[in-house]
Computed example of a mutant assay.
Amino acid sequence: MRRDVAAEHLNNRTSNRDAEKTLSAAGEAAIHWLVKDAALPENTVLHLDPATLSQVLAPAEDASARHSQRRINNLFRLVQGRLIDRGAVSAVAMAHDSAKRVRQAREDLLAEGILILGPYENQRRVAAALGLPQPEPGQCISIRVARRRPIEDEGPFAEINGEQWRVAESDDPAEAAPAVR
Rank of each mutant, 00 (worst) to 15 (best):
D4C: 13
V5D: 01
E8T: 06
E8A: 08
E8Q: 12
L10Y: 04
L10W: 08
N11C: 11
R13Q: 01
T14G: 03
S15G: 03
N16Q: 08
R17P: 08
D18R: 09
E20W: 05
T22A: 04
S24M: 08
E28A: 13
H32W: 11
W33N: 05
W33E: 10
W33T: 10
W33Q: 05
L34Q: 10
K36Y: 11
A38K: 11
A39H: 13
A39F: 06
L40A: 15
L40K: 09
P41T: 12
N43M: 01
T44R: 13
L48E: 06
L48A: 07
L48S: 06
D49Y: 11
P50E: 12
A51D: 15
A51T: 11
T52Q: 11
T52F: 10
Q55E: 13
Q55T: 07
L57Y: 04
L57A: 01
P59L: 10
E61A: 03
E61S: 07
A63R: 03
A63T: 05
A63D: 03
R66E: 05
R66I: 04
H67P: 04
S68C: 02
S68P: 01
S68M: 03
S68G: 01
Q69V: 01
Q69T: 00
Q69K: 01
Q69M: 02
R70H: 02
I72Q: 02
I72P: 00
N73I: 01
N73M: 02
L78R: 00
L78S: 02
Q80F: 02
G81C: 00
G81E: 02
I84M: 00
R86D: 03
R86K: 07
G87F: 05
A88T: 01
A88Y: 04
S90N: 04
A93L: 04
M94F: 06
H96P: 10
D97I: 04
D97A: 02
V102A: 09
Q104M: 14
Q104W: 10
A105I: 09
E107R: 15
D108W: 10
E112S: 15
E112V: 05
G113I: 12
G113S: 13
I114C: 06
I114T: 12
L115G: 14
I116L: 12
L117N: 13
L117A: 14
L117Y: 14
P119K: 12
P119Q: 12
P119G: 13
Y120F: 15
E121L: 15
E121C: 07
E121W: 05
N122M: 15
Q123M: 14
R124H: 07
V126Q: 03
V126S: 06
A127G: 11
A128H: 12
L132A: 11
L132M: 10
L132Y: 09
P135W: 10
